[in-house]
Amino acid sequence: MEITKSLMLELYEKMLLNRIVEEEMAKLVIEKKIFGALHLGIGHEALSVGATLPMRKDDYLVFSHRGVGHSLTKGIPPSQIVGEFMGRSIGCSKGKGGVHLSDYSRGVLGISGSQGGNFVIAAGAGLRAKMKGTDQVAMCFFGEGTSNRGPFHEGVNMAAVWKLPVIFVCENDTYSFSTHQKQVMLIDNVADRAASYGIPGVVVDGNDVLAVYQAVNQAVERARAGEGPTIIEGKTYRWCGHHEFEDGTKYRDKAEIEAWKQKCPIIRVEKQLINYGTATKKELKQIEEQVKENIQKELELANNSPVPKPEELFTDVYANPEVFQRGISL
């Protein structure tokens, strides 16, 4: 496929958006405006953006707890994502989901609280597309750690045997929280597991957004054509802690973290754009300023949003809410 200037600039812009929104969210944790666990994907942008961008608006997306970048790329406005983490009514799940964000109008089905619970959900969304005869696909992001869970096996196998239109994208950042991959797996590549399901497994440089985009695009085409699922594994690294309650240095060498920061996926695409003469520094600077300006407006919207009304505690439990639910009082 052809890599056009506009595609490269779009990837660049979305990666910047992803990075800066997450940096702002980290500040909101310190300001105690974001509650609960925030799992930043800083360092993962080539995957969160590069693998999400090939999707259409009506395609289905499920991701891990590190899903801010994917949600932004799928088109959820930053105000609704940040607002969700702040527990405000502007949030894409009305402040009831937090890290479990979703937006069904954009095909964002959400995350599983139990890590690795998303494989079977993605298979189900793919089943829906197949049964309805649409050419939609379902994209399932996961970390290498959850490929050790049973639902990985069940979801991938079912998708494979029924040739469901699902793309399983592994964001392999070597650590499940503090646990190194070598402590819990004897293989280097999660994608090698694809062989046991009779489906393709592809390993890419997870910090190379163009490589990710191309690999995923191919898998999406394959899925739309009814040829079934693919596992794509991108090798990357998270710069931050598992979540914002720890900084990731108890179990990782600072030198290792620094080395990966040198491989920043955003600087990499920036260099590609400039070195090949695709864009000028000035053009890129303009994009950055626009992104920042937009984010500031969006953050303001989130910050000004009211908290959910008390009655929201009791709504949305059931579609047919005739079920007896106890009130707050006795």
């Binding site: 959900i121 993605a122 597309a129 069940e154 079912m158």
Partner: peptide, 22 residues
């Protein structure tokens, strides 16, 4: 007929329903 995979049976059903209209 599904594989012997209860998580995939129920999770798949949830996914199919959530994705819309099944």
């Amino acid at each position: 007929d599904t594989p012997l995979s209860e998580s995939a049976i129920i999770g798949g059903a949830v996914g199919a329903a959530a994705a819309g209209g099944m």
